[in-house]
């Protein structure tokens, strides 16, 4: 999957999880930048990413994530 397409789909996921149409997903975006991005929402986000892209993450992969760029790369390494 093209990285651009991943970002486009990720934006929809973020809008959905954070219930916010105005959110703009960029590579350096992280939990520090979004108030509503707490540990609970983090899990929701990852579970929604999993079902949207039809991929599965392990706990260690999730543990290493720092920002959206890492997430997008992880998706690219798994999604066809």
């Amino acid at each position: 999957m093209e990285i651009g397409e991943i970002y486009k789909k990720l934006n929809t996921v973020f809008e959905d999880v954070f219930d916010d149409d105005t959110i703009v997903v960029r590579p350096e975006l992280s939990a520090d930048d979004v108030d509503a991005w707490d540990s609970l929402t983090h899990i929701r986000l990852l579970l929604t990413v999993e079902s949207t892209f039809n991929v599965k993450f392990s706990a260690s992969e999730i543990g290493k994530l720092k920002n959206v760029e890492g997430l997008a790369e992880l998706i690219r390494s798994k999604a066809n």
Binding site: L40, I43, L47, F57, S58, A59, I62
Partner: peptide
């Protein structure tokens, strides 16, 4: 198992 380990779902 993943979801249980991750968040006790």
């Amino acid at each position: 198992p993943t979801e249980w380990n991750l968040a006790k779902l």
